[in-house]
Design a protein around this nucleic acid. Structure first.
Length: 110
DNA sequence: AAGGTGACTAACA
DNA sequence: ATGTTAGCCACCT
């Protein structure tokens, strides 16, 4: 058994979840960053997909995860961008009218 | 069971 | 500089 941590496929999901939950309050990050930290450079799509399914099952601060433009690409009507904007402002993050966040200012890099 | 879709990003032409 | 193609893996039908 042993061996080193076997990079199990489904582990990526758990890894992403752990990273997302690790994002400090008042900061935001991008899918690409999380995917990279999870071990996959081009796994950004998975991060979005994972949050899509797990945000509803787990308590993931999905509102702290946005696309590279600092814009919320969310498509879940159950979690409208409007809600995210409120959540981000609640964390002390400024959100532009276009739901854009300054990653330069609030971007968390791990 | 297998195929297709997806909350994206980066690289190439 | 912009536009298009390719890649990642899990969840849904």
């Amino acid at each position: 058994m042993v061996s080193l941590d076997k990079p199990e496929l489904t582990n990526f999901k758990q890894k992403v979840i752990q990273i997302v939950k690790k994002i400090p309050r008042g900061k935001v990050t991008t899918y690409g960053t999380v995917s990279t930290l999870a071990g996959n450079l081009r796994g950004a799509r998975m991060v979005g997909g994972i949050l899509h399914f797990n945000s509803d099952k787990y308590d993931l601060p999905w509102h702290r995860v946005i696309n590279r433009e600092g814009y919320i690409s969310i498509k879940r009507l159950e979690y409208p961008k409007e809600l995210q904007k409120a959540l981000l402002q609640q964390e002390g993050i400024e959100v532009s009218e276009g739901f854009i966040v300054n990653l330069k200012k609030y971007g968390w890099w791990g």
